[in-house]
């Protein structure tokens, strides 16, 4: 036999080292097997999207959003966000955070070259823009199946399994906040479920910013099951929830909160600011707004 004791010990330690290195790897096994897109591709796609930013929105002043004016609306909660244009430097970290949080798929190269991404957050000018969750949403009114609908607490929600892909909502959104799954991302190996809390969408389904619906749902369920004496479930105000984009912003330029809750950071931090919305949405009672300057 050619292997002496020295050789044998060498290969034994090799096994140990290799196993250790492999165990310490950051990439999950599925990615090594090659059937899932790598995190790097998602990062690169965001960089590409940032390099071809769209033209800025035409912003007009709006009053502070109040309670929703739809039947069955909650008088306690109306969730929304404010994007601070004075702090935002357009780094795009919110886009990647949203993509990973919501399992937003990649697009094929042809689409990417034409700037047709599935990203729920777009850079318009140098500020992030996502669905404004209009209180009087024109997109929902034209949905033939009721897949696009409003929650009592101010989210314009998408029920993917109800969506038949008419794309009427996309046509009726004045700011193109909606993204349509023209491709079967899962079959093309462009989708990856980073977050188990959010289902992957099929081909032929419309999607858009959900205001991190799953985070709110989970917090509500947690609240309801951990009641302390004296509180009732109606008093859930979504305190402590943050959307993924707001969490990711290094400048704290995206503020998530509850427009109807005095204690919410959203109400506190927008108090002395001037609020803006894209001109097209100004009359539609948007929940996600921009802010700039001081009053």
């Amino acid at each position: 036999m050619g292997m002496d004791r020295r050789e044998f010990i060498k290969s034994c330690s090799l096994v140990a080292v290799m196993g250790l290195l492999f165990g310490c790897r950051k990439i999950p096994l599925e990615e090594l097997a090659g059937d899932l897109p790598s995190l790097k591709r998602f990062e690169d796609e965001v960089k590409l999207a940032l390099s071809q930013a769209k033209k800025s929105l035409d912003l007009v002043k709006i009053p502070t959003p109040g309670a929703l004016k739809i039947p069955g609306a909650s008088t306690l909660n109306r969730f929304g966000m404010a994007i601070d244009l004075d702090s935002c430097d357009g780094c795009g970290k919110c886009i990647l955070a949203c993509n990973l949080e919501n399992n937003v798929p990649l697009v094929p190269n042809e689409d990417a070259a034409r700037g047709r991404f599935m990203h729920w957050v777009d850079m318009r000018g140098s500020a992030p823009f996502m669905c404004a969750h209009c209180g009087n949403a024109p997109c929902e009114r034209v949905c033939p199946t009721g897949a696009a609908n409003h929650t009592p607490d101010g989210l314009s929600a998408m029920m993917y399994k109800r969506c038949t892909g008419s794309r009427f909502c996309g046509a009726n959104c004045p700011v193109q906040a909606r993204k349509f799954n023209f491709n079967d991302a899962q079959k093309l190996g462009l989708a990856r479920q980073f977050n188990r809390e959010v289902p992957l969408r099929d081909k032929g389904v419309m999607e858009k910013c959900s205001l991190c619906l799953h985070r709110l749902q989970n917090d509500r369920l947690k609240f309801k099951t951990s009641l302390t004496v004296g509180e009732t479930a109606e008093e859930w105000r979504g305190r402590g929830v943050k959307t993924a984009c707001a969490e990711a912003c290094p400048k704290n330029a995206i503020i998530f909160g509850n427009w109807l809750d005095e204690k919410s950071p959203l109400v506190k931090l927008t108090k002395n600011r001037v609020l803006y919305a894209p001109r097209e949405l100004a009359d539609l009672d948007p929940s996600v707004v921009f802010m700039r300057g001081r009053r």
Binding site: G2, M3, E7, S11, L14, M18, L29
Partner: peptide, 25 residues
């Protein structure tokens, strides 16, 4: 022969370490 054996051992080590790591992690 011994060189061949060495390579076989390395191949084995690599494959084995993969399976071991997967088993453990």
């Amino acid at each position: 022969k011994s060189r061949l054996f060495k390579w076989a051992a390395i191949c084995f080590a690599v494959v084995f370490s993969f399976f071991l790591a997967d088993f453990l992690m």
